Computed example of a mutant assay.
Amino acid sequence: MSSGQKTVTVFLTLIGGLLLVILGLYESWPLWAWAAAAVSLLTAPVLAIRFADGREEPFPAEFMPDLPVPPVERRELRISDVALPSAADDYDFLFSATVRWCPVSAPAGSPPVNASGLAVDALLARARAVTALRSPTRSSLVQHELNGVLGTMQEDSSGRVQAMALEVSLALSDRDQERLAALASVRKDEAVWEHERKFEQSRRTYLGEDVLRDTGSAVVWWLHRNDDRVDRTVKDIGLLAQLTSAANNQDVDEKFRHLVERPPEEGPGIPPIGTPAPPTGPGGAPGTAPGEAAPPTSPAGAGLGDAFAQLVHAAGLGPEDPVVSLLAGQVAGTLRYLDGDPAAEIHTRFGSSPGRPSPHVNGAGPAGPPPPAESVPF
């Protein structure tokens, strides 16, 4: 009799004894009934044990050896940083996940397989079909998509395992992330530049082909821009005519030419003081003496002598006027204290010379420093 059978026998004996006690108390049994119930209660389990011991075991213990418990197959595997293609060439996603699988019953005679390898290959094929169509700049969005696509147990192509993925992670390498950020910045700058270029081109087209097409269009546009101020627009017609002709590479129209302001004409050059006066012909007309060539004229320079000559001419003084020598002496005396004697040219060209009287002011001596030994004639 096994230990399980003995436990059941003891349990039934206790239950039967409790039932007999309850029944005896309820029926108020006499003493002899209690004794009979006790004897029957003790005899029943003994007979049951002896009957069970007399039966033979269907499977003797020598035919049931203790076999070792087979090891439990591990059905999870972590994979990390597996490169998967993206929609952009040379930019791969780095895929990480926990692969979980379970074997599928195989028909008799099927060869043994590496279930974990089949499961990982099936998961990577499913993930690659998704990432190959996605942009590498959307790695976080594609990661959540893969969590949904790979979150269902599906059989592999051989039909030997079912696999799914947990804790999916998808990212790009740091260098690729920097390159994509730089390319995105350049594309944005290029788009802004292209927009600005088209805007500028549109403005030039508007001004050249519409506003400045002719003077009338320019006048109407200018009248609108000046809040319908007719007086100001009328004053600017000449300027608008010039602008229109310049924009179209044409001369100003004849009917607007009288409105165009002309620059003042330059008069003849004023010869500097000290240049011999050209001889005059009959009637005071400029000319040359008979048999003499016209004297060359010296162009106006930028020195102090030329500037002083312009001052004398503007004051209306003649070349032989004694006041010129007086002024030259005073200016040279004033400037002689500067480094380099910048008034030397004035004193040399306009100082007193033989044949030119030295002026006196109120009986005083000649004003200014004495002339040099040699003096250039005026």
Rank of each mutant, 00 (worst) to 15 (best):
R134I: 05
Q154E: 14
D121V: 12
Q177S: 15
R134Q: 11
L84E: 04
N147W: 09
A127H: 03
G151V: 03
Q177F: 01
Q154P: 01
V130W: 00
L118C: 03
S116Y: 02
V104L: 15
E178V: 04
S139Y: 14
V130A: 00
A88T: 09
A163M: 08
L166I: 00
P103A: 10
V142M: 02
M153N: 00
G159Y: 07
S169K: 13
W101H: 15
T131F: 02
L133K: 09
V142C: 06
E145Y: 09
L133I: 01
R134L: 08
S116E: 13
R175C: 07
A132D: 14
Y91P: 00
R126I: 07
F95W: 02
G151E: 02
A165P: 05
S86L: 03
V82Q: 09
A108I: 06
M153C: 01
R100P: 02
F93Q: 07
H144S: 05
M164L: 15
A163L: 12
S158H: 08
A115S: 12
S80D: 15
G109V: 02
S80V: 14
A119T: 06
P85N: 05
D81H: 09
L141H: 00
A83K: 15
S157I: 05
V113S: 04
L180W: 03
V149K: 09
R179V: 03
W101Q: 11
S116M: 13
L170K: 01
G151L: 04
L170F: 03
S140I: 10
Q177G: 11
A127S: 10
E155H: 08
D90S: 13
A122G: 10
R175F: 06
D81R: 11
A125Y: 06
S135V: 06
V149N: 02
S169W: 11
V82G: 03
L124Q: 14
S139D: 15
C102F: 14
A88S: 10
G151Q: 04
V99P: 01
A163Q: 11
P111G: 07
G159K: 01
A122P: 00
